[in-house]
Design a protein around this nucleic acid. Structure first.
Lengths: 315, 315
DNA sequence: CAAGAAATTGAAAAAATTATCAAACAAAAT
DNA sequence: ATTTTGTTTGATAATTTTTTCAATTTCTTG
């Protein structure tokens, strides 16, 4: 048995360390090329050779792969480790930043929403001077006491970091009057921004759930009653201020008009990246994917497992 | 620049951790297959991915490769580390044992010489029960006070470990009388052994130098005068009790008749493995290779460097 | 701001690797 | 001893990867 390991070591050294090809090794060994290929497979299998990817952020390759394949995503990144909500979200944002840095380039339009994921991500972005990058605020303002979670400020800060321009929506996230709504969306700057939001290349967003802790409610834009009502009508999450059910069908919010791009805008982007952490987001995340709003997920291990579990149950 | 590293990490994770092929990655990235191939190259180059071969004996892949290619060897193994003679030889023997264990199989004839390398190697061999393995003593006996360096005992012990048979030469390494020589080589058992020695599959041997410490002289088979004379006639080393010059031409030893297989026997074996350590062996090693007596070297770093240096000088 | 140099890219071709399959071999059971 | 069963092996085919090369883009430098 030791003979076998010695052989695996020998072949692996020749292949990986000395860089010979399999047919040269076959000649040395006096065997055939396919046999060398099999030996190298075994060496990997048995842990004689190990391939390490040096990344500052450790990911779970199995989960990433399953998530991507099972949900039909363009890409899925699952950060390893068992973190609490805050820490998990931070790690996801680091991974999202890593991903974003490889996608962003000159002449791209970046659509953003709001929330803590976006804030953390925005902080992480390395300043760089791109040409003709436009950051578009896709949802109206969330006038909480904490302006740095707000799309308005985030778009400004992100544009600054990327050396680009920004398109803002100087309006609240929801209005209750249809007249006001009509006026606002016709307002030239807002109209222009919303139009741009329909043609973004990269969208970065958190994924809204409908638990009682949702920022939307805390900020006073949604009452507990509204929330219960939405849940009663099947809603499980929201994006761009639009709630949707588990299949991604929009559930209208009665008596509120959202000053934001329609959900359709999410489908137009080449990259629509959802960043989210912790199990309680699972339903919303799965629905966002089922609706085709999100084609790329950056999540933590817990959430990934929960989402896959839910997806399984659906059958 | 960080963008590039992030991209290399991303591609490497997809390729090595998730096992996607390059064209799947190209689709995700929105680029071409060759670009992915180039990125993976870069990732290796930049140390983003590292391939580790877990071997109990660390080798120097660069030196191994250079030695093999520059000297046209079947295989070359250079053990890493800066050891003194004793320790270096031990490490070489461990590596040689590793190599040997991958080569030896049923129905093979193994030719051995004598010396400390062979003794250490013999101690390391794992007992195993091969079928029809024959261990052939290729050189007569070296009657020093230390019988365990002697081919006679080594052949016996090695055969025992491999579960095979042995063929011995019950005669001294050299005799001074031609009559005695003729009688001995015609002696049935010796004749049979010498005949077998001409058709070995694997030869294991140290490589003899002509420094004043050579065991041959210490054992009294060679006087200092003989040695100086040989050196004067161009000899730089010896194998199977036959001295040779730097190009591998045999230098006859005047007044001595060797009871051993001819140098030609070395060329017949598929594997003729020379085990040697320390710089002072360099000339002898290079000559043994130049003469085509050795097709595989197992040496330490110091010796490898020195041999390569000498080989370079020859041009 | 244009012109040339250098680097980057993808299409096509070449090379290398992996998968498939049937034959040879070995082990086990009759 | 002989058949059966399960491995191992290498030839062939299919796939994947790498190289080559021409075209394009990007970066310098006058």
């Amino acid at each position: 048995m030791d003979k076998k390991v010695d052989l695996l070591v020998r072949v692996s050294e020749l292949y990986y360390e000395q860089g010979l090809n399999q047919s040269a090794i076959a000649d040395i060994l006096g065997t055939s090329r396919p046999t060398v290929s099999r030996l190298l497979d075994e060496a990997k299998e048995d842990g004689v050779v190990e391939v390490i990817v040096h990344s500052p952020i450790k990911k779970d390759p199995q989960l990433s792969h399953r998530l991507r394949v099972n949900l039909g995503l363009r890409e899925a990144i699952v950060v390893s480790g068992n973190y609490d909500y805050e820490k998990g979200l931070s790690r996801c944002c680091e991974a999202a930043n890593q991903l974003f840095s490889t996608i962003i380039e000159n002449n791209k339009t970046v659509g953003i929403t709001w929330g803590s994921a976006l804030k953390i991500l925005c902080d992480l972005i390395e300043p760089k001077d791109y040409y003709n990058v436009n950051v578009v605020q896709m949802v109206g303002c969330l006038a909480t006491g904490n302006p740095n979670l707000d799309g308005l400020e985030l778009a400004f800060r992100m544009a600054k970091k990327l050396g680009g321009t920004y398109s803002n929506i100087y309006a609240p996230i929801y209005v209750e009057s249809e007249v006001v709504y009509s006026y606002l969306v016709a307002e030239p700057q807002i109209e222009a921004t919303l139009k741009r939001a329909m043609h973004t290349d990269i969208i970065l967003t958190g994924i809204g759930s409908l638990d009682s802790n949702t920022t939307l409610q805390k900020a006073g834009y949604l009452t507990d009653r509204d929330r219960i009502d939405l849940i009663g009508r099947g809603a499980v999450g929201h994006l761009l201020a639009h709630p949707f059910d588990k299949d991604g069908n929009e559930i209208p919010l009665i008596g509120r008009f959202a000053i934001s791009a329609p959900l359709e805008a999410m489908r137009a982007a080449e990259w629509s990246i959802g960043i989210s952490a912790s199990e309680f987001k699972a339903e919303a995340v799965l629905a966002a994917v089922r609706g085709g709003f999100i084609n790329t997920l950056v999540v933590d291990q817990k959430l990934a497992n929960k989402v896959l579990e839910l997806a399984q149950e659906e059958e």
